[in-house]
Each structure stands twice: as C-alpha cells, then as structure tokens.
Design a protein around this nucleic acid. Sequence first.
DNA 1: TGTCTGACAGATATTGAAATCTGTCAGCGG
DNA 2: CCGCTGACAGATTTCAATATCTGTCAGACA
Lengths: 197, 197
Amino acid sequence: MNEAVVLTPERILEATEDVLRRYGLTKATVVDVARALDVSHGSVYRHFPSKASLRDAVAKRWLDRANEPLCKLAAGSGPAPERLEKWLRTAFNIKQKKVCDDPEMFATYLALAQGAREVVEAYKDKQVDLIAKILSDGVAQGEFEIDDVKTTARAVFDATVRYHHPAHAEEWAKPECPSRIDALIALLLRGVRVCKQ
Amino acid sequence: MNEAVVLTPERILEATEDVLRRYGLTKATVVDVARALDVSHGSVYRHFPSKASLRDAVAKRWLDRANEPLCKLAAGSGPAPERLEKWLRTAFNIKQKKVCDDPEMFATYLALAQGAREVVEAYKDKQVDLIAKILSDGVAQGEFEIDDVKTTARAVFDATVRYHHPAHAEEWAKPECPSRIDALIALLLRGVRVCKQ
DNA sequence: TGTCTGACAGATATTGAAATCTGTCAGCGG
DNA sequence: CCGCTGACAGATTTCAATATCTGTCAGACA
C-alpha cells in the first residue's frame, strides 16, 4: 500500500472540508466526499460512524485552527486588562474574517451552533476557560477584583455573544458596529477592574 | 352600517393575531384573516398595503403590550441600580414567559427579528432609550459614573442580547440560566457604578 | 362617494412520484 | 486477516405538476 493512498481520518477530513467549501453544507454528501477521495462511500463509514460525526469533526478542526491565536493570547503574559481587550477584539476579528473569507464553512458552523452540537458546547467551554485564565492573571496582578473567576468569565462570554455567535453575523458588517464593540469592551473592563478612586 | 361590522384596522389586527395563534406564522394567510372577519381578502388590502405590513403591525402591537411594564419601570423613581436590575430581570422574565405561553406569536417575533424588520429595530431603540433613562437617573443620583449614557445604554443592551434576542430562546430554559443571569447583571452593574473604594 | 367584492395574473406553496442519499453488511481481493 | 467494495433497504431530497396565495383593480352596491 502506497502511503499517499492510505485512507486516514485526516485525509477524509481534508476532503470533506474541500467538499463543504465547494458545494456548501446543504449540498455536500458523503458520496461526494468518497468521490473526491476516489473510494466507495462505505469506506468513509469505516472511519466515521455517521455523516453528523464527520461534519462535527471537520467543524472541530476548523474551530481549533481558528482559535489558536486566542489560546496563545490567553497563555501569554503582560497586563491582564490589555490582554483581555486584545483577546476580545481578536475573537471578534477572527469571526468577522471567517464570515467573509470562508462563508461555506461559517454556514456549517452556524448550523452546528443552532443544533446545539456537542463540539460547539466544548468550544464555548474552552473559550470561557481562556477568558478565565486572563481574569485570574488579572486578579494576581492586582488589576482585577473578581469574586468568582469562572462565573465572571462566563458572564463576559455571555455579554459578548452578539459579536461571536454566528446567529448575529449579519450585524457585524454594520458601520456602527466598531463603536458599539468599543463601548461594550469598556463597560466589561470597568466591571472587572479594581476601583482606582 | 352596524358599528360591530365596520372593518377597522384594529379589528383586522385582532383577527390576524388570532389567526397567527391558531395556524402559526408559516400557515396563516391573508385569506384566513379575511375569512375570520367574514369579508373578502381584498378588503384587508384596503387597510394594509401588504401581508408583511400587516404582520409587522400585529408584532408591534404585541411588543408594545409586552413592554408596558418596562416603560413604567424606566419612568419610575427610586435608586437606579435596583431599578436597572429590576428592569433587566423583568425584560428577561417577559420574554421567557412569552416563549412558553404564546409560542406562535413568539415565532412570529423571531422571524421578524431575523428579517431585521423596521418594527424590531424601532423596538430595540426604544429599549435602549429606557435603559438610558435609568442610567441617567443613576448619574443624577450619584450612583452611576458614565461618560456617554446613550452609548453605555446600547452596550448594556448588547451585553444582554443572549437573554432577550429570540434566537437564543432555547437556552433560556436551561437550569444554569438563572445563575448566569445573576453573574451578568452583577458584572454590568459593577461596570456602571461609581467606585466606592 | 366611498367601501367592499370577486375575478384575475403572477408568485409561492403543496404534493406525490422518482431520484438520490445514508448507513449496513456480506463477501472480494491483496 | 483486514480494509475495501458495491448492492441493498429505508430515509431524505428533488422536481414538476397542481393548487393556493398575494396583490390589483374594474365594477357592484349602499
């Protein structure tokens, strides 16, 4: 067996992402994926138990790749307030960029988010953990004053749904959007900062 | 012409709301409305230029009725922080109650909100004005410290989309919801309050 | 005179038959 | 033995014919 010809989950995911991009979520079929790989569609089911699981796996890969910068920001050091602001702005920018540059994959993500799929839940939990990391750094630095870091991280995430949940994507292009983001971030930062009278 | 038989916009709205409740947004037709009123559907078009305008008018009525308590709260007096908290909780409760008790009308509202209809934009602006009223009262009372009241009101509104935008209605029934609302409100109140060191 | 009717054209929705897709599995071939 | 194939059943989607709906308007009727 030639190495280039071995059918691996990774190769299937790659092909599935291509097919999703080409045909869109509604039109892409498992048969299309198999055809792209030049195998029978039965072979695909040898690696993924269902079309849904395949779609979920592709979305997970896509989300993980998109979120790498955010993980780095959260793991980094430096003053927490600036880092939190940067993190939120980066999160919004990534989403905004994806909705323009990769609309078909974004639509897939939207469908997943609306179906309350496990992958998206996991992804959201991860996001909250990243925020929590920055918040607890901020508490350690004496910059933030927070009772319950985890709960507050969740609140910050909830407060920003409008700019990361795909259901609101249509609003992201509006001209007043940036200034509203500024106001929201300012409000949230004031909500976690220690009071310097 | 008997008074009970005069075809008024109000009677049409009443009948349309009934028809929407009975058949749902997807099934309700102008012919159904006309039938309920025992007139030809042409007569309905004498009072409303299109089905969309009729639907918008019904939704406006419904939203206005639902929001009366919020207007009263904003117009009232008393300490602004408590009033803001009460206002937000009331807003969430109203939505939550509607989604349970009046699901068909709520679905209509959801469709409208997703279509970015003018009536929903106007309604959102009104909500922001009510928040702004409470915020400016708070500033006058020395309880809040806010640069730009209008902008901050918008930010508070944006921060709470998750609990008033119908796209997130499915999440409102979850058991962890109340505590997340508590955390969000606490965060936002801290964000507008003056710092009492 | 002004409101309402009912027939009409074009747009939209429904329906059921045919095509395609998903997921399974017995068996082929390296 | 192991991964793959291809035929299959049931579920889902497509497609085109048909029916219904929206929006208009000339004319009836009070």
